[in-house]
Every structure is written in C-alpha cells, then in structure tokens.
Write a protein that binds this DNA or RNA. Structure first.
Length: 573
DNA sequence: AGTGCCTGCGCG
DNA sequence: AAAGCGCGCAGGCACT
C-alpha cells in the first residue's frame, strides 16, 4: 500500500459554490484537499476512482444526493460509506459501547428518519436535514470510525456498514438501469383479463360485465361496489351476513353474489394497482423504475416508494422482458429465513434438514411433522410467533426437534416482551420500546392498577415479543441478501462490456452495454445481461450466494440453494 | 383542496 | 378474518 494513496475520499459537502473533496489515509491523515464545481464532479470522481487502490471508499452524506447525477454522467464507483445510513445503524447498535457522541449528532438522526425526500421527483435534490457542511461531514465520519473501532465486534459492524452502503449504490443503480418492461405484453394481459380499454371514463368491458353480474345477484342496480361500508350494507340486504368484505370472509358464504364479487374485486385490484395508468406513469419507455429505499424497514430490509416495486404481482411477471440479444437471469433463495435461523443459532439438526434443496421436505423426512404444508406453517409460525390455530399447534414439535433454533427466537421474544433490545447477526439493533409502551407496562405493574391495564399491557408485551422474535431473523436474512447483492455487483462489473452499439440505450449510459442488476425483492434478484454472458452471470450469481454465506456464517455447514433460470422473460417458473 | 385514518390486497 | 412478522398503495371517507 503506497503511503500517498487515499483509503477514503470524502465528498465533504458544499463550501460556497464548490464541492469539497478530502483524500484521507486509513489512520485519518489528510493527504489532499481540493474543490470542484458541481458540473466538474463526475470527471473528478472518475479520475480518482481510476487510480484508487483496492479498498478505496467514497464517503458522502447521502448517496441519493450525489450518485444519481454521477450515473447519469456515466460514472460509477466501486465502494462507498453512506454516512446517513451508517449513522442510523450505529446510533442504535447494541455492539457500539458508547453511542453518546453519535446520538448527540441529532442533525444526522433527523435526516435518517426523514423520508419526505424519498419521492422519485426529489431523489436528485438535497434531502432535507442531511448535513452538508464539510466540517460537520468530516466530524461525523470521525465519530463513526471511532464508534466502530471501540465496538464489541468491529468486524461484524464493518461488514454491515459496507453492505448497507453497497445497497445504497445498488438502489441508485437499479433505478438508473430500470427493469426491462414490455408494455405491449402488459397491455395485452390487461386486455385479456379486464377487457377492452375504455375510451371514455367507464370500466373495461369484462370488468363492467362482472359488476353487472354482482348487482343482479344483489338485486340492487345501484349498488356501490367500491365503498366498503356501502357494499357491506348491500350484502346484508341480500342476506349475506358478512362482517367485512375481505376475500377470506366472503368465501365462507354460499350465495350467488360471492363468485362474481370475488372476481370483480380481483379484476378491480389489477386495474387500480397495475392498470394502464400505472403503465403510463411507472413503465413508460420500456423500463420500470421504482424508487428503492435502502434501510427503509426497521429490520434493515429495503422499502420502496412509488410504483409499488416490492408488490409487483406475479401475474405481471411476463411483462418483464429482456431487450433483444439480452437475457434475464432470475434467481431466488429457497427458504432464506429458516436457513438464516439455522445458521445463526448453529442448529445442526435444522441445518441437516436443510441439506437438500427443500428445507420443508427435510423437516418431514426427519419425522418432525407429517406433510410439507405442515412443516411450512410450523416454521412460519415459529418465526412469527404463532400461538393459536394449526400453526401454533405445530410449533412445539419444532421446539423438540430444533431446540437451538427455537431458543434463539424464543429468547428474542422474551427480551422484547421485557422491553429489551435485540440485534441481528451483524449488529443492527431493534428500536427501544416507545414511551407509550413503557408507560403502559409501568401502569400495569403499579400496585393500584385498574384491571383493564393488565390485559392491555400483556397484549402489548406479546405484540412486541413477536416483533423482536421476527426482527432477528428477518434482519439477518436482509443482511445475507445485501451481502449477496454487493458481491454480485462487483462480479458483474468485472465482466466485459459488449462491443459495438448497444441494442438499446434505455438502461442509461453505463448499463446499456453491461450486465447489470435490474430488480431486487428481499430474496430474489433479476440480472439483465447480454445473451452471450448468460452462463457467466449465472455462475456469478451462484458464487456470490456462496460468498455471502461464508462472509456471514464462516464454515457452518449449510448452503443457501438458489432457484435460478435464464430466460427472455420473468414470467416462467 | 388538503390531511390522515381505515379497509383490503399485493409482495417477501 | 386470518391464526402470525415486515412493508406500500388505492380508494373511500371524515375531518379541517
């Protein structure tokens, strides 16, 4: 390592009309300070990136503040440290021994909780509240480094911060590249299911036909089908004594209105959530560009804002189509969360059950329950804290067969019920209980508590227990997925760009000639790749999954098998 | 007209 | 109406 090469380059913020960049060694020595006009930034960053040593990171206050403009200019970076996201992790991590300095830096806290700037239209704008002053940015980075160095387990935290920051880069890149979307396929699907698109303000023909059928069965030509209270009253008049209009409830009744009404609701849902209006707004030019929000969920999962990226119905998958000459590599992890639970609890018995490709069949083969369906609801019940019904009934069998795994989630639940903090494998910690929650518990344990207080407090405690029970598993699964994604991103960047003119330029200046991530959904990814690189990408996807497993869980004998296919569209399988 | 809550349903 | 976690969004509706 050359003494003059920076380990970090801090994009420290704005001073007058110029952006301040500080090159810093790993021990904090400042090597060089320079400034650039905003329009010069892509070229400056490209130049620094080109001569950076391995492991160099960009440090900046907020990835959406800087990175989209770089991507638009055709510049990407290998690594970054996102101060806003890392602050949010460190200030509440139980691994940080003395978070006082970080918690005192309230400007970063306010910014971390502010989602008003996550709107697609403002993604390029400055996010309200994120400090932009070079001295403050530098100080916050120093606070974070000190917190990590003094932490109980610095290596885990470093891995978590690196993964979280890589996620910030990937989220911006996913938006820039977009998911290839065939609007003709989407339109055909809508027309097939809903009927011809109305020219005026009316409903598509098949949807209208269903509505007519429902009103006939109700004997009420004026019945309102889209207002829950009105529909409920119409149903009551027709002799259907439902208490709600949800699908599960309606299915219990035997009445001629039920079938057409359920059909109507299904079609109406497609029209309002992902109909022609959605297509025009969110996938207008052959790409669906949702706004991803890394760290948007308490557990560390990503959220999304706009377009409903994380709720894309299976029904619409056929509209995800590769460009000509390109393919999609679609991969998801089978039973990610129970595998994560087995690994983090070091439960060899559960790891043995996961040995094949289907963990649930493995549980059946071990004689714990008798069918795959039972295994599935038992495992979900264990992770979610089910106490009643089929699921709750099966959990004790799991507790006998996999005591280590079950202790981990049972302990997490107990800590939560007691008002404590739990943490993921890499050290993301749950938020403390709200003051209202604490007040409720305090009131109930008071000597002269009213009788209602006690049951309310017990219920709130159990609710929180189910939350912390699930937090450790869902959060660690999110960490595995981030590690997978981050490693894969590096492997894809190392593949050669295609020669000649790109088949399409809709993925932006960087990704129109390079294999790139196009979609991410908790435990599933889609890579858009030149057809000639399909096998290389598939190998990279698998290798990254193995790397993520090793990074998190070392040599624990458990793998995370992928369901992987190479196809022109994402609708099969 | 803007807001915030409720219901219901899509995803993992 | 899910029993049992985490989300976002549309539409209706009550409120300001």
């Amino acid at each position: 390592m050359s003494a003059s090469s920076p380990a970090w380059t801090i994009v420290a913020g704005r001073e007058h009309d110029r952006i301040v960049l500080l090159e810093v060694t790993s021990d904090g020595t400042e090597l060089r300070r320079r400034t650039a006009r905003r329009d010069e930034l892509p070229a400056v960053i490209r130049a620094v990136e080109a001569r950076a040593q391995a492991g160099h990171r960009w440090v900046w206050n907020d990835t959406p503040r800087w990175y989209p403009a770089l991507l638009n200019a055709g510049v990407d970076v290998a690594r970054c440290h996102d101060l806003r996201l890392c602050h949010a992790i460190l200030r509440s991590s139980a691994l940080v021994s003395d978070p006082a300095d970080l918690r005192g830096a309230t400007a970063w806290t306010a910014a971390a909780g502010d989602d008003s700037a996550d709107d697609a239209l403002f993604a390029l704008e400055e996010r309200a509240g994120v400090p932009d002053d070079p001295a403050e940015v530098r100080a916050e980075f120093a606070r974070q480094q000190a917190a990590v160095q003094a932490a109980t387990d610095p290596d885990r935290l470093r891995l978590l911060l690196a993964a979280e920051s890589a996620g910030a880069l990937i989220a911006a890149e996913l938006h820039a590249a977009g998911l290839p979307w065939d609007s003709a396929v989407h339109d055909r699907l809508l027309t097939d299911v809903l009927g011809d698109r109305p020219s005026g303000g009316g409903l598509p023909s098949l949807l209208q036909a269903r509505a007519d059928e429902v009103r006939r069965a109700l004997g009420d030509p004026q019945a309102s089908l889209d207002s829950q209270p009105k529909l409920l009253r119409s149903l009551h008049r027709a002799g259907v004594a439902a208490r709600s209009t949800s699908r599960w409830e309606l299915a219990e009744f035997d009445h001629p209105v039920i079938a057409p009404l359920l059909a109507y609701k299904k079609l109406m849902r497609l029209l309002s959530a992902n109909g022609w209006a959605w297509l025009a707004e969110w996938a207008p030019h052959g790409r669906f560009r949702p706004v991803y929000v890394p760290g948007g969920v308490v557990t560390g999962r990503w959220a999304s804002s706009g377009g409903g990226a994380l709720q894309l119905p299976r029904q619409l998958r056929p509209a995800v189509r590769a460009d000509p000459g390109w393919v999609l590599v679609v991969a998801d992890v089978a039973q990610l969360e129970p595998r994560v639970l087995a690994a983090m609890s070091r439960d060899i018995a559960l790891a043995d059950a996961a040995r094949g490709t289907d963990l649930y069949e493995g549980i059946v083969a071990g004689g714990v329950v008798s069918t795959r369906q039972e295994a599935k609801i038992a495992v979900l019940g264990a992770m979610y804290g089910a106490t009643t019904g089929d699921s709750g009934r099966l959990v004790p069998a799991l507790r006998r067969a996999y005591p280590r795994a079950m202790s981990l989630v049972d302990d997490a639940a107990r800590v939560g019920e007691d008002g404590g903090i739990v943490s993921t494998w890499l050290g993301r910690s749950s938020p403390p209980p709200s003051s209202a929650w604490q007040a409720l518990q305090a009131r109930a344990s008071d000597a002269d508590a009213v009788s209602g207080d006690d049951t309310a407090a017990r219920r709130a405690a159990r609710d929180r227990g189910r939350f912390t029970r699930n937090f450790v598993v869902q959060g660690t699964a999110a960490e595995w997925a981030l590690a997978w994604l981050a490693d894969l991103r590096g492997r894809l960047a190392a593949l050669p760009a295609i020669e000649g003119e790109p088949a399409a330029t809709r993925s932006g200046p960087l990704f129109s000639r390079r294999a790139h991530l196009a979609f991410f959904l908790h435990d599933e990814i889609i890579v858009h790749a030149p057809a000639a690189q399909a096998e290389a990408v598939a190998a990279a996807v698998r290798a990254s999954a193995e790397r993520a497993t090793t990074l998190l869980f070392g040599g624990f004998p458990l793998d995370f098998p992928l369901d992987l296919r190479i196809a022109d569209d994402a609708g099969k399988g």
